[in-house]
Simulated scan of single mutants.
Amino acid sequence: MSVTVESVKCACPDCVCVVSVNNGVEKDGRIYCDEACATHHKDGAGCHHAGCACHG
């Protein structure tokens, strides 16, 4: 039996977003919801998704 994962929680620890594996930003083998999370909020910007207040 095999399982196909289609969505995962963003790898950013402060983020609450769930992202499609196919549409996420992959960095270092982890899936992030967008570039801000993938770069560990180096510019201090959050992901700007509704309901999420992450800033790394």
Rank of each mutant, 00 (worst) to 15 (best):
A36Q: 13
G56V: 05
V16T: 15
N22T: 09
I31C: 05
A45V: 08
E6G: 09
C54I: 04
D43L: 15
D34E: 04
G29A: 03
T4S: 04
S20M: 06
V25P: 08
V18N: 15
C10K: 02
D34S: 02
G24V: 00
C10W: 01
D43V: 12
N23R: 07
V5C: 00
I31T: 08
C12T: 05
P13Y: 12
V19K: 00
G24R: 01
D14I: 05
H41D: 07
V19E: 01
G44Y: 08
V16E: 15
H55T: 10
V8S: 03
R30S: 13
G29W: 09
H55I: 08
C47L: 04
V25T: 14
I31K: 04
K9G: 10
C47G: 06
H40S: 14
H41N: 08
C37T: 04
H40R: 14
I31G: 02
C47P: 07
E6S: 11
V5I: 05
N22W: 03
V3K: 08
G24N: 01
C52R: 04
E6H: 11
S7A: 10
D34H: 01
C12N: 12
A11G: 03
T39W: 13
H41Y: 09
Y32A: 02
E26F: 08
P13A: 12
S20F: 06
H55E: 11
D43F: 14
R30N: 13
C52N: 06
I31M: 06
S20V: 01
V21N: 04
C52Y: 05
E35F: 12
V8D: 04
C47M: 03
H40E: 14
G29R: 06
T39H: 13
R30K: 15
H49S: 11
A50M: 12
A11S: 05
P13V: 11
V8Q: 03
G24Q: 00
S2E: 12
C52D: 05
C37Q: 06
A50V: 12
D43Y: 15
A36L: 05
C52I: 03
H55L: 07
E26V: 12
